[in-house]
Computed example of a mutant assay.
Amino acid sequence: MYLYDHPGGKYVLEECRGKEIGKYFYGAYSLDDNIKVHKHSFVAGKIMKKIAIAKLKLPMDIDNMVTFGGEGKGDGRDHSHELYNGHFKVTRKDEIFKGVYRVTFSNENNHYKIVLPGTSTFGRHYLIHSESQKVSRYYTICNSMNSEIYPVYINNIDRLIGNSRDEKLSLDNVDDITESLQLTIKFYEQSRKGLTRLLANVQDEDEFLVSKPMGKGLDLSADSITGTNLVFLGGTGVLPFLDFFVFLARMIISEKSPSDKIINNEEFEPFFKHSSFKVYAYYPNANEAVALDLLVKISDLFSHFKEEERFSFTPVFTRQGGDRLNDQKIYEFLDQASRASDLKNIWVCGPPKMNNMFQRLRKTIERKYEGSAVDIM
Rank of each mutant, 00 (worst) to 15 (best):
M1E: 15
Y2M: 12
Y4V: 11
D5H: 13
D5E: 14
G8K: 06
G8S: 14
V12P: 00
E14W: 04
C16T: 08
C16I: 02
R17G: 12
G18S: 11
E20I: 00
Y29A: 02
D33F: 13
K39M: 12
H40C: 13
K50E: 09
K50Y: 09
K55Y: 13
K57Q: 14
M60Q: 14
V66R: 07
E71K: 15
K73T: 12
K73H: 12
D75A: 13
H79K: 08
S80D: 11
E82L: 12
G86Y: 05
G86W: 06
H87S: 15
D94I: 12
I96T: 07
I96A: 01
F97N: 06
K98M: 09
R102C: 13
R102I: 11
V103G: 01
V103M: 06
F105E: 01
E108M: 08
N110P: 07
Y112R: 03
G118D: 07
G118I: 08
G123C: 02
G123V: 03
H125E: 03
Y126K: 11
I128C: 03
K134W: 05
T140F: 11
T140N: 13
M145C: 14
M145A: 08
P151C: 05
I154S: 07
D158S: 14
I161Y: 02
S164K: 02
D166W: 07
L181T: 07
L181A: 06
Q190H: 15
S191F: 09
L195V: 04
L195W: 08
T196M: 09
L198P: 06
L198S: 05
L199F: 05
A200S: 15
Q203K: 09
F208D: 00
L209F: 08
V210I: 15
S211C: 10
S211N: 08
D219M: 10
L220S: 01
T228Y: 12
F232A: 03
F232P: 04
G234A: 02
G235A: 05
T236H: 04
F241N: 00
F247S: 01
L248K: 10
R250T: 03
I253Y: 00
I253T: 01
K256D: 05
K256W: 03
S257R: 06
S257G: 00
P258Q: 08
D260G: 04
D260L: 13
N264F: 09
N265W: 11
P270I: 03
S275V: 05
S276Q: 09
K278W: 11
V279G: 00
A281N: 05
Y282V: 09
Y283A: 07
Y283Q: 04
P284R: 03
A286W: 07
L292F: 14
K306E: 15
K306Q: 15
E307C: 12
E308G: 10
E308R: 13
E308V: 03
S312V: 06
S312Q: 11
V316L: 06
V316W: 03
V316E: 06
R319D: 14
G322P: 03
L325W: 07
Q328W: 14
K329C: 02
L343A: 05
W347V: 02
G350S: 07
K353F: 14
K353N: 12
M354V: 05
M357R: 05
R362E: 11
I365Y: 04
I365Q: 07
Y369P: 07
E370L: 15
M377W: 13
